[in-house]
Simulated assay, not measured.
Amino acid sequence: MFLAALFWACYRFFIHTKLGQWIDEAALLGGETFLKADKTRGPALAFLDYMPVVSALLAGVFILIAVLRRRDVLQPAVAGALLLGATGSTQLFKHVVLDRPDLNISGASMNSFPSGHTTFAAAAMAAIFIVVPVAKRPLVALLGWLYAAIAGASTLVLSWHRPSDVIGAYLVVAWWSVLAGLFLRHAHGNDPDRAGTASGPRPVSQMLLRFLAATGALAAAGALALAAVMPHPTIGTLQKAPLLVFLAVGLVLIIGMAMATGLVVYELFSRYGAPIRRRLVRGMK
């Protein structure tokens, strides 16, 4: 419910209020103004061109390894369902359920919330997160959400998506990840190793994830507050200096929320999710 409420709040503020649409559009225009050179957009375009294939291959390889090593198809199947469910629901939200009202902020009336590219990148990493052993999950969560942050920032650099589209994609994937964890906990039971490992030293990757998430959340809140108090003239009259500020605001929102969402998923999954077992034990759920 918490993640669904955040998704709805993000949609209502950035898509259905003038202030939210204005901040979104100013960040997008900042990207068009300062990051339009080929040397800047080229790497982002190359990354997004290969990203769907690379993400699918990575997720597919890890899922296949999980099937072969553990002889348990349930966990890999749920990981695949997470990937399909997140990407499918994003397309449903974008093209059928949600709308983008014309508030005289920009000429764009087509809804682009949430971002499909970002959803796919984050969901592929979430699928890997589910099938790796528990000890590897902090590192996979850290690297996976950094990957999702780069994917989201690249869509802004290329002017494909506004910051809110990317944040919405993160929240869709987070919701599906927690749902997958709850389902697997019901199917596999509690983690017998959780109590024994909870008191041990935390991995460096887990501490780094927490640090980046806390820093990112504070930076995102500060950036949004700055964007709210700055002047909001007609979008077409913005000068380069404020455009640069709003571009920075958009990038901070994307990267900060990626890490904060990644930590939320990791903590919720660690508390309520399922363990990794090499195979299902007879007589157990």
Rank of each mutant, 00 (worst) to 15 (best):
A153Y: 01
V281M: 10
L35S: 01
N111I: 04
A151T: 02
R71F: 05
R41Q: 10
V96R: 14
E25A: 15
H16G: 01
R194E: 08
S154F: 01
A81S: 10
T87I: 06
A214W: 12
G107F: 02
M207T: 14
G273A: 07
V132A: 09
M230G: 07
L226M: 14
P163F: 04
A180F: 07
M125L: 13
A198I: 13
S109T: 15
H117V: 07
L139W: 05
G60K: 00
R202T: 11
P43K: 07
L184S: 01
M284F: 09
P114Y: 00
V264R: 00
P192H: 08
R282W: 11
S109V: 15
M257I: 07
L82W: 09
Q206H: 12
F129L: 10
N111G: 03
D38E: 15
L184T: 05
W22H: 15
L92K: 10
L82R: 09
S159C: 05
I15H: 03
F34Q: 02
R202G: 03
F211N: 02
A198M: 11
I255W: 02
V96E: 15
A241F: 11
A195C: 00
G273F: 04
R70D: 13
R12Y: 06
E25F: 10
V67G: 02
W175Q: 10
L92M: 15
V132K: 07
H186F: 13
A135N: 12
S112M: 10
F113E: 06
S177L: 10
A81D: 05
W176P: 03
G30I: 07
H188V: 06
S270T: 11
L58W: 12
L243I: 08
L244Q: 08
T90G: 01
D102N: 15
W22D: 07
P192E: 09
T155Q: 01
G144Q: 04
A135H: 15
H16P: 02
P233S: 05
V229S: 10
L58Y: 02
I105E: 01
S199E: 11
A9V: 12
H232L: 07
G20R: 06
S270V: 03
G256E: 08
M257N: 15
V264Y: 01
Y272K: 08
R279W: 12
K285G: 09
D72N: 14
D102F: 02
W22R: 08
L226T: 14
V140L: 11
P133R: 13
A123W: 09
A46K: 13
N111H: 06
C10A: 12
A127Q: 08
F269E: 13
V54K: 05
P203K: 04
L156C: 00
T237D: 12
